[in-house]
Design a protein around this nucleic acid. Structure first.
Lengths: 170, 170
DNA sequence: ATTTTATGTCAGCCATGTTGACTTATATGC
DNA sequence: GCATATAAGTCAACATGGCTGACATAAAAT
């Protein structure tokens, strides 16, 4: 244990710690997407469809532009999957009332059901992980994850304020 | 604040909390892969090449089978990218001495350099996030992430034991 | 000697990203 | 009102990286 505080060893631990973070993120994301992917296959859909369904379900009335900005893909890529989802009755488009060029997107009942099925798996995964880790760990998780995300997207996640549950209040 | 403890509202907060987790993971992974992807483009490589280079660099002498198990892809998929990396001198293969059917993989100097360039971006991202969040948050992050990962892969992450630095020891 | 295992290969398919060029409808600014 | 900008969509072509299926080779294991 003598050399554990040597510069070299501290550097090694740091490197090891960072690599572990990288791998945790890789494996977590891989496993996190696996279950929905399997369900999507039954519908002839892929992961891209899930993302669209998810964010439309999350923000009913979202415009195509907003969706593009969220997903950071081209409109041609989005068009392919969105077109299918509209065609097959999972998503409905209605012209914007203020700006009639816009197509406001929302889930049709069929889409709501599929969204629930898909996201349920991921929600369950998080529920288990959160429960096992405890509230304090969840707070740390949030902090680190926010730090990993590009500044431009952090605003999507409101800071834990007075109107939200905090440690010890529940 | 009166209804904040009502069943309905607790359910809402829980749902919101879980969705936030889902989105944190989605955005973090998306941003985490963006920088290396840009560099890979300059080499005519893709994200799949990065994964191979990463895990070979991480475990020099790893066999093709082990790599397949880690990545959870088919050997045909791996073959495509691994073949290129060997062809272009980023990875070298040497027959296993105990089992000569195996091809033990390790990075050539060129591969080491590329690996460093790619992973450096991700390491820096984690270093910043960890530093900003603090040691306690990092511990929580680890706990939650481990909980998200399939049981089969958790063994890749040794529990923080006596031979590793713990809070307050450093 | 047979069977199993580790690896590689050929061929083709699918999903999902990209660029580039162009259209249409509507909103906005002068 | 007219010119321009914006929201959305479309067609075409291409790249990446998954997949299945079938088959080949060499070495290990039984």
């Amino acid at each position: 244990m003598a050399d554990i505080k040597s510069g070299v060893n501290l550097l090694f631990l740091r490197e090891e710690e960072l690599r572990q973070g990288i791998e945790l993120l890789y494996f977590a994301y891989r496993d996190f997407t696996a279950e929905p992917d399997a369900i999507l296959g039954d519908y002839g859909f892929g992961r891209a469809h899930h993302r669209v369904i998810y964010f439309v379900g999350r923000s009913p009335g979202i415009t195509v532009s907003e969706l593009l900005a969220t997903l950071r893909i081209t409109k041609q890529s989005l068009s392919r999957v969105l077109g299918q989802l509209v065609q097959e009755g999972f998503i409905v488009q209605t012209p914007g009332s203020r700006d009639r060029r816009q197509r406001l997107l929302e889930l049709a009942p069929k889409g709501v059901e599929l969204e629930r099925m898909l996201t349920e798996k991921q929600r369950a995964r998080f529920a288990r992980a959160y429960r096992e880790a405890g509230a304090e760990a969840v707070e740390g998780f949030r902090k680190v994850m926010l730090g990993l995300i590009d500044d431009a997207d952090r605003r999507r996640f409101p800071a834990r304020g007075a109107d939200q549950r905090k440690r010890g209040e529940g």
